[in-house]
Structure formats: structure tokens, C-alpha cells
Design a protein around this nucleic acid. Sequence first.
DNA 1: AAATTTTGCTACCGATCGGTACTGAACGGA
DNA 2: TCCGTTCAGTACCGATCGGTAGCAAAATTT
Lengths: 206, 206
Amino acid sequence: MLVDVDITQKAPVGRPRGFDADEALERAMLVFWEQGYEGASLTDLTSAMGITRTSMYAAFGNKEELFRKALERYTEGPAAYGGWALKEPTAREVAAAFLAGSVRTSTCPGLPAGCLGVQGSLAAGDPGQVARDTLTAWRNEGCSRLRERFQRAVDEGDLPPGTDPELLARYVMTVANGIAVQAASGAGRDALQKVADMALRNWPPA
Amino acid sequence: MLVDVDITQKAPVGRPRGFDADEALERAMLVFWEQGYEGASLTDLTSAMGITRTSMYAAFGNKEELFRKALERYTEGPAAYGGWALKEPTAREVAAAFLAGSVRTSTCPGLPAGCLGVQGSLAAGDPGQVARDTLTAWRNEGCSRLRERFQRAVDEGDLPPGTDPELLARYVMTVANGIAVQAASGAGRDALQKVADMALRNWPPA
DNA sequence: AAATTTTGCTACCGATCGGTACTGAACGGA
DNA sequence: TCCGTTCAGTACCGATCGGTAGCAAAATTT
């Protein structure tokens, strides 16, 4: 059996889709962010995306897949501060950048308050457990990235020997998660940045 | 028009209810805690409560009222540590007791992980906005209680003059909320207690 | 121009949602 | 004992849930 591999990526036979899939995904992400997985109905989603149910299923699979892809977009978009923070030179700057990014994204004007990775689905009934588990894994993944980064900082002498990277990572992630909840409760950016500053006042010295 | 006022409270005419309303409410609270407001269907709730839909509506009103009453029970039960913590003699002990209580309740074996006041409803669609607002008010109420307590601590000299009680309260509540999210993500009691300890290492001296 | 493929649309699927009408039985007060 | 009230249970309400079938129009390939 011969298979034609599309090298030029220019030959999608048939009528091309009439909407921007990226922008549609962006809209879906915002709805999930604001209303959570269970609270976002297909009607909410598709009307925000500007497409019909048929087009949505053809382009994204189903609601769970749409959520997964929206989370990926969230990770590379509003939550990209997580990856950037890991590149800071010192552990303390990593933590500060991570918390500052969390504050900024959770309180961004024009965007939903809080964090999709937290309020997307913390507790759910049967039909929403896949989404819930996906988000749990997402948060724990972030925690692991921080831990690895702090472990490196210990190895490099950036953090005092004997420092527990696991604890530090959990601590930073806990504060970030709390910031997200507080933002969803209506807390403002300045107040939360002060909280983030306070959370770093006891950081291990270099 | 004459009205008979029931002074003895011993004359409920008609057939008495055949179930323990308190225990039924307890069961409902657990379902809301585990699955959230939107994720808990009436079928889930009533089958856990061991009563029929009719009895539930007669005894508690509707789903929103049931949730409100379940939250009250949660406040006086698993979340009673909040009230106890305020009675500690010093601000630092208040904060420590609050966070320790948050860790214990969020990771109690046999109970759902996390905090009903957080994961009950952080983001919701239209039908769940009342529950969401109720929880937001509940969390902000807790924040206010802490602020008042810390204000008193400042007035009494327990905290250094110039200390910002609002910031302290927000800080403690943020960490507690983060602990709840972490517990819902599977974090264990010991790990979270270490996080709570770390969060208090920079507490203002007395 | 023919062939192919996806579009956008309506209408619909079975299942479940929160909530209620109706019924017969069980209980208390008179 | 009889009346009045509330019980628990079933069956059902309209609405909405996530997901699809079928179709004519549109757009790209060959």
C-alpha cells in the first residue's frame, strides 16, 4: 500500500474550512475558563466559537477533546509564564516570576478571573471526571517542573544544601493555586501581588 | 383571625417524617463536596440521602437551598476549625491553627479531599451561578473574620504597629485555598502541613 | 467541467436535567 | 373512630444535555 505524504501541506482536497480553527479554540478556551468544563454547554461553546455543532465535532472531536486542546492553548498562551519562569537564573527568581505570572494572568482585564487549570474542574460528577483528571495531571505536571528546577538549583549551589526541592515546589504551587482561587473570588491584582511578595519573604537564602 | 402559636413545639400534625433530616443533610453535603454543585445531580443526592425527590423538596426546598444548608452544616462541622482558630491567643497561633485545620480537613481519611467552599463551585454556567456566588461570599466572609482578628491583634500590640491586617488575612486565606486545591490534586497530609509550616516562617514577630 | 470533500444548517436522537402532580398509605389529634 | 395532614413512591413534566443523520451549497482538486 502506497501512501502519499503531504510534504507541501498545501493539498487538502475538498472545501476548506470557513473558520479560523485557532481563533475558535481561543473562544472555547475562554468559555471553559469562565464557566468550567461542566458549566460550559455545547451551545455555549459553539455559539461563542461562531460555528455549528457539526463543524466543532469535525474539527475537534468531542467536548472532552475540545477541552484538552483548549487546555493546551491555555498552557501556551495565558499560562506560558510557567515555562518562562523556569528559565530564570536563580531559584528565587523562578519562584517570584511564577507567582507574579500567576497573579497577572489570574487578574487580567478582559480575561476571566482565576486560572483555567484550577477552576476548569476541581470536583465533578461522572461525565466530567476525565476533564477533572486531566486538570489534576496538568497541575501536578507544573509542580514536577518546579521541583526539577529547584533540584537543579540545589545541585548548582543556588539553594542551600539539604533544601527540599519537593517542598519548595509544592509551596510555590500551593500559593499559586490559592492566588487563582482568590482571583476568582474577586481579589484584585495589587492585593494578590502583595500576597505573592509576602509568600517569598521566607525564601531560603542563596 | 386567630393564630395558634405552637409554644411547646410538640404538635406537628400529620405523619412525621420517616428519616433523619440531619443525617440526610450530612450525606448531601458529602456529595456536594465530592462532586461539586453542578456535578451533583438530584439522583446522586437523593440516593445518597436515602430519600425520594419528593421528600427532599418538602424538607429542603430545592437544590440551591439544599446546597446552602449543606454549606452551613459544613461550616459548623468539617470547617469548624475556622471559628476555633479565631479564638487562639495570638495572631500567629490563629494563622497556624487556621492552616493546620485546613490541612486536616482537606486530607481527612473517609472524607472527600479538598474543601467544599472551594471545589463546590469555582466556575459555573448559568444554573450554577447562585451556588458559585454563595461560595464566593463564604470565602470572603472567612477572609473578613481573619482580618478583624488580625486588626484586633494590631490594636492589642500582638502584631507590630503598621502591620496590614488585610494583607495578612488575604495571605492566610490564599495559602488555605491553595492547600485545598493541592489536597484535591492528591497531595498528602504531611506534605501539606510542611507547606503550611513554611508559609508561617515569615510571620511578623510579636 | 467533473469529481470529491467539507461546509453550514436543521432536525433529531436517547438520556438526563431540575422539579412536580398524583396516589395510597401512615400517622396524629379530636 | 374518623378527620386532616403529611408521608413516601411512581410516573411524568418541559427543557436541556452531548452527539448525529441527512442534505444542499460551496470550494478545491483532477
